[in-house]
């Protein structure tokens, strides 16, 4: 791959354009997020002022103090973390297993089951929200941790996603595993799971952030104040007509930071896993 050759002017121009494009996109993403984070440290009165500045003229903690006074935010962080980690770990296992079977094993009724699953992916959550709530209420699971997490133990999008990764792997893998005397589950856990590390990490990130930021589901499934979650906490500062921007930004920042940390550590693993699993046949 590594040939040294002179670039033509067209290639130089293309390279420059791609750099500019990538940089522009990065600015577009980072500028509003950073501005919001900085705004959390502005004195409440200076958030709404003209002309606006990018960096705060004064740095204060008033907004954070306000948040801690008005809602038990640390408890919300703990609740949200538990919800996100449990649903992510279990759903990752269940989805990968099902995705693998659908992608690579022939079994009776496979297409029927898969089509039914696909159909359920098309159901907007709002359609089943009310009947699901009634069902869980009937099972006595509303306002319990089990009721919150068990319905999230598998997701059709996740199954579909894992399936699309497993279909791309070379066909000889299972046969090699069987020759080595591995059981079917052995093949899955020893060969297939490690090979799809990058897909698994991608899905873990999606699942965890999805659970972390879910608004409607925790709102529906929790009644007691001590079971509420972060996104509900932020909504507390957002009224229909007026928004308390200062504390809302501060609470928003508190909700972003743990994800950002996981993200920074995950990124290292994310890249490593991609390099080490660089599937050579």
């Amino acid at each position: 791959m590594r040939h040294t050759y002179k670039m033509t002017p067209v290639q130089i121009l293309l390279k420059l354009l791609s750099w500019l494009f990538l940089l522009f996109m990065a600015m577009l993403i980072v500028l509003p997020i950073l501005w919001t984070c900085l705004s959390a440290f502005r004195p409440p009165k200076m958030i709404i002022q003209f002309p606006p500045t990018y960096f705060p003229r004064a740095w204060v903690m008033d907004n954070f103090i306000d948040v801690f006074k008005r809602i038990p935010i640390l408890l919300y962080v703990k609740n949200t973390f538990l919800f996100a980690i449990v649903t992510t770990v279990v759903s990752l296992l269940f989805n990968a297993m099902a995705g693998y079977a659908f992608a690579r094993v022939q079994f009776k009724g496979k297409n029927v089951i898969f089509t039914i699953l696909m159909a359920s992916m098309m159901i907007p959550f709002q359609v089943i929200m009310l009947p699901l709530f009634m069902e869980l209420h009937f099972l006595g699971l509303v306002d319990t941790f089990a009721g919150l997490v068990v319905p999230r133990f598998a997701g059709v999008v996740g199954i579909f996603f894992m399936r699309s990764f497993y279909t791309t792997l070379p066909k000889q893998l299972e046969e090699a595993g069987r020759l080595d005397g591995l059981t079917e589950f052995g093949i899955f856990f020893r060969i297939m799971m490690p090979l799809c590390k990058s897909a698994l990490v991608t899905q873990a990130v999606l699942s965890f952030t999805g659970a972390w930021n879910d608004l409607l589901w925790p709102l529906l499934m929790t009644n007691s104040p001590d079971k509420r979650m972060l996104s509900n906490g932020i909504v507390y500062f957002v009224g229909q007509s007026t928004t308390n921007y200062g504390p809302a930004f501060a609470a928003g920042l508190i909700s972003i930071v743990p994800l950002l940390l996981i993200f920074i550590f995950g990124q290292k693993y994310f890249v490593n896993s991609i390099v080490s699993s660089g599937m050579k046949e």
């Binding site: 269940f94 989805n95 297993m97 099902a98 693998y100 079977a101 659908f102 094993v105 022939q106 079994f107 009776k108 496979k110 089951i113 039914i116 699953l117 359920s120 159901i123 359609v127 089943i128 009947p131 699901l132 069902e135 068990v150 319905p151 133990f153 598998a154 997701g155 059709v156 199954i159 299972e174 059981t183 079917e184 589950f185 899955f188």
Partner: peptide, 24 residues
């Protein structure tokens, strides 16, 4: 393989049936 596959899809299929398809 064609039997183990049922065990592999079962957990996910049960969860989806109970909490998406039944309410549907």
């Amino acid at each position: 393989p064609n039997h183990a596959a049922y065990l592999m899809v079962a957990p996910a299929v049960i969860v989806v049936c109970l909490f998406s398809i039944f309410p549907m």
